[in-house]
Computed example of a mutant assay.
Amino acid sequence: MAYRPTRSNDWGFPRWRGYGSGRDAKPVRLCDRHGCEEPGDCPAPKSPNNPERWYFCREHAAEYNRGWDYFQGLSAEEAAEREAEESRGAAGYERSRHYAWSGPGDGTRSRDELRALAALGLDDEATFDDIRAAWRRMAKENHPDVRPGDPDAAVRFQAVQAAYEVLRSAEERRSPA
């Protein structure tokens, strides 16, 4: 009869054992860079369109990516043609993917609102009371009747008015009716 060990990993209570807390050794793949003893957890292609991968540590993966040239071996005309061909289809919109679902920052203000806040000289977290105070102050400073000899005052006044209108309409949309 074969010897069976009587010691278990869970002391008879399977729910006491956490997931992945076995006593077995975990396999660790080392970095494929010669002489490196760090774990290789960053896959990198060995060549374009090849399923085989190198596995590097983070430091050597960064070094590999700095030297990677997608258009290696192509002339300038062939590289431009391939780039145009790949961006012609729906994959060309991948560059603007970050515009898909969220706006800039934390998503509470649109891009136009952020531009309007910058025109009023306010930060992104300004309340509507701060916006109204800045609008009144800047409108009084740049009003064409206050500065009759300054031709740029009318342009600044119109910019302040447009910024306030954008922020006021956004505030009205946000506030419950």
Rank of each mutant, 00 (worst) to 15 (best):
Ala84Ile: 02
Asn9Pro: 13
His98Cys: 01
Gly20Val: 02
Arg82Gln: 07
Arg17His: 13
Asp129Met: 01
Arg88Tyr: 02
Ala133Trp: 01
Ser175Tyr: 06
Glu94Phe: 09
Arg53His: 09
Leu114Phe: 05
His34Asp: 06
Ser47Cys: 07
Ala162Lys: 11
Tyr3Leu: 13
Glu38Tyr: 04
Trp54Ile: 00
His34Ala: 07
Glu78His: 02
Arg23Ser: 15
Asp150Ala: 07
Gly35Pro: 08
Glu165Leu: 07
Arg4Met: 10
Lys46Tyr: 05
Glu63Lys: 14
Met1Leu: 05
Asp69Arg: 15
Leu167Asp: 00
Ser110Met: 07
Ala116Val: 06
His60Trp: 02
Gly73Ser: 07
Arg95Ser: 02
Arg168Lys: 11
Gln161His: 08
Ala126His: 00
Ala134Ser: 10
Ala100Asp: 10
Ser110Lys: 04
Tyr19His: 04
Gly103Met: 05
Phe13Gln: 08
Tyr55Cys: 05
His34Thr: 06
Leu120Glu: 02
Gly105Val: 06
Phe13Leu: 03
Leu114Pro: 03
Glu141Val: 09
Ser175Met: 12
Glu81Asp: 14
Pro48Ile: 13
Ala162Glu: 10
Glu52Ser: 05
Gly18Tyr: 12
Glu38Cys: 01
Ser47Leu: 10
Phe128Asn: 00
Ser8Lys: 06
Arg132Met: 00
Leu167Gly: 01
Ala2Leu: 13
